[in-house]
Amino acid sequence: MKKSTLTVVATAAITAVAIIIVFVLLLPIIGPRFIMPLVMGNIAAPADLDTATTRPTDSGLYRVSFTSALDPIAINQIHSWTLHVETADGQPVDNAEISVNGGMPQHGHGLPTKPQVTQNLGNGDYLVEGLKFQMTGWWEVRFDISAEGQSDSITFNLVLQ
């Protein structure tokens, strides 16, 4: 073997060993920051989650938005939302029947309370009372909306800290 080849091989070997040792030494720092989030994929919400507060319903019948009386939404506090429902072309929907559901898709449990639409505020606005979230993470809140013989649904995503 030529001497120069030997030098290249030795350099490569030493560099590789050095990199491995440095990586192992740095693991306690790299681990929690970069590796654990990968391993614990079920804890973090999906990165591409749509958390918009104004969205079209699943079949596109309505456009729905919500505003929370508790802003930002914090855990363990019961509060109310105002839900606004309008048709796809922007006309307020005033006579809707709305039911509320939800939960944490990654934990397989529902909402800790039974929120309800308690008031039709007019102009397409509805008061939703009794909302509460008792954990941080990804929550879904689903509204089933029926008006004039038609119905559609919308699921809002929340990621609470």
Binding site: L111, Q116, E129
Partner: peptide, 9 residues
């Protein structure tokens, strides 16, 4: 009394 009114019963 929101907690009571909207509790899961």
């Amino acid at each position: 009394c929101a907690e009571l009114k909207f509790m899961v019963a």
